[in-house]
Structures are given as C-alpha cells and as structure tokens.
C-alpha cells in the first residue's frame, strides 16, 4: 500500500519534511512518493501527513486512484464554478 503524487503537484515542498518514512522525493517534473517506502503513515499518525498539508486538490491519490483531497475540499471553490471560470477565461 502506498500513496502517489501526480502531475498537478506544484513542488511546494510542504509534504517532504513531514514524511515519517522519507518516501517523498523532490523529483522533477514533480515530487514523487517511493511506493516501497510509503506506509500511508499507518502506525505513525492518524492521517497521512503529506495529504494533510498538500494545498492542491487531487494531487495525492490512494492505491485505488482516489484523490485524498477531492475537488472543492481545500479551496472551498465549487468544481462547477472553477470549470465555468476556466471556460470564460479561455473564451476571451
């Protein structure tokens, strides 16, 4: 079992020092989690540390590919509003 960081990561470094097993690497183009080292913080913390500080919705997934921080959960911006705004800006 392991979490993974995907391409929407902004390389902000917030997660890296929190990882209890040192599984997070400052890789390029984005940070990554070494799946062999990741314990999902089990036995160490009640919640995965990287996903508890990550500011980007959808950037950290569980083994099943589900976002630990789904759209709208961190910024409070409803996903429909975000999509509409993106469309408006692109149309200009």
């Amino acid at each position: 079992m392991a979490l993974q960081i995907i391409a929407t990561c902004v390389n902000c470094w917030a997660c890296e020092p929190l990882c209890p097993t040192g599984a997070i690497q400052a890789a390029r183009p984005h940070f990554r989690i070494d799946p062999r080292a990741c314990s999902e913080c089990e036995g160490q913390f009640p919640v995965p540390q990287c996903a508890s500080i990550c500011p980007i919705e959808g950037a950290i997934l569980d083994q099943a590919g589900r976002a630990l921080n789904p759209p709208g959960s961190l910024t409070g911006i409803p996903p429909e509003r975000l999509a509409a705004a993106r469309a408006e800006i692109q149309a200009r």
Partner: peptide
C-alpha cells in the same frame, strides 16, 4: 520558502 501551513482565500498555491 515555497511551503505553506495555511490556506488563505486570496492566495492560489499554483504560484508561478
């Protein structure tokens, strides 16, 4: 200092 420990409603962390 790229990391932050809070979110503010006037900030977007995709900062580049």
């Amino acid at each position: 200092a790229p990391a932050c420990n809070i979110q503010c409603h006037y900030c977007n962390r995709k900062y580049d």
